[in-house]
Structures are given as structure tokens and as C-alpha cells.
């Protein structure tokens, strides 16, 4: 049960119930679609990059609480960051969800994203948590309109 409480933290459920930045963006500079064929999670990420800085970011999609809350938190946490900073944060986040349970996390870099640290105890949910991030990274790398899968 403690693993469950760890997984579905209040903040995670809050982002699931009231997702932030969940909207289409007409004037996005790049977008990408992500899909997890295993469970059908879908997420589209819209980015507006100006002078190397993520001026705006939003998402749309359907999926489980982990995928939707992760997408919501991702948008809040990369907004205003440079492309390089966002990519670096993705690496830290990815390291957190794929670490061995019990291993240390880089709390300072992660901030509230640490709410998803419990995912590492559920190996078949890691893809749910990382889908929006993979999609965001694909969009940053100009893989416009390309479908990302986490398989």
C-alpha cells in the first residue's frame, strides 16, 4: 500500500484532476504526438520557442493519471527554460523514474517533479510518466508531426 500512496501522491492526483496548460496552441513553433501502444496513452505537445527559450508550452491528450499529470507538470516545469535546460531536466527526470527504488534523487533540480518519484517501483508505468517528456524532446528536436512511441 505504501508504494501506492507514493505513486498516487496528492500533487499527482491534483494535476490529473486539474491539468495545467492543457490546450491546443495555434501559433506553436513545433508540435509532436506521443503514443504508448501498450495502454493507449496519447499526448500531443505544443511548443513556442523564441530565441532558444520555451516561451510557451501546452499539451493535449488522453491517458492514465500518471501520463496526464506528468504532462501537466512537464509543461509547468519547462516553461521559461532554455532548450538546453529543458533537455537537461528531461535527463534528470528520466533518471528519477528509471532509477532503482531506494536510490537517491536530485531533489534540487527536480522540485515538484519529485512527486512522480514513486513510479520507479512500478516498472510498467515508467512509460506513462515519461511519454510527455519524450514527446516534448522530440518536438524540441524538430521532429515535427512525428509520432513518438515509448516502446
Amino acid at each position: 500500500m505504501s508504494d501506492l500512496v507514493e505513486l498516487y501522491q496528492e500533487l499527482v492526483l491534483d494535476h490529473n484532476n486539474r491539468p495545467r496548460n492543457k490546450r491546443a496552441m495555434e501559433d506553436a513553433s513545433s508540435t509532436a504526438d506521443g503514443y504508448n501502444p501498450l495502454c493507449g496513452d496519447q499526448v500531443s505537445v505544443f511548443l513556442k520557442v523564441e530565441d532558444g527559450v520555451i516561451a510557451d508550452v501546452s499539451f493535449q491528450g488522453v491517458g492514465c493519471a500518471i501520463s496526464q499529470s506528468s504532462a501537466s507538470m512537464m509543461t509547468q516545469n519547462v516553461k521559461g527554460k532554455t532548450v538546453e535546460e529543458a533537455e537537461a531536466l528531461f535527463e534528470v527526470f528520466h533518471g528519477m523514474v528509471t532509477r532503482d527504488p531506494g536510490a537517491e534523487v536530485d531533489s534540487e533540480s527536480l522540485g515538484e517533479l519529485e512527486a512522480l518519484a514513486g513510479v520507479c517501483a512500478f516498472p510498467n508505468r515508467i512509460k506513462c510518466a515519461s511519454l510527455a517528456w519524450h514527446t516534448m524532446a522530440a518536438s524540441l528536436n524538430g521532429k515535427q508531426q512525428e509520432q513518438v512511441t515509448t516502446e
Partner: peptide, 23 residues
């Protein structure tokens, strides 16, 4: 209502219950 099947599957699994979730 309001809960994705994938989350149901994970929570049931922690109770030892194996169901299939997805399409």
C-alpha cells in the same frame, strides 16, 4: 468515472488481483 483503466490495473495488482487493462 474519472479513473483511467491503467490506474485501476496498477492498484488492483497491488492487491494481488490480475486483470487486463487497455484496448
Amino acid at each position: 468515472d474519472g479513473i483511467h483503466p491503467h490506474d485501476i490495473g496498477t492498484i488492483l495488482d497491488t492487491q494481488g488481483i490480475a486483470i487486463r487493462t487497455g484496448h
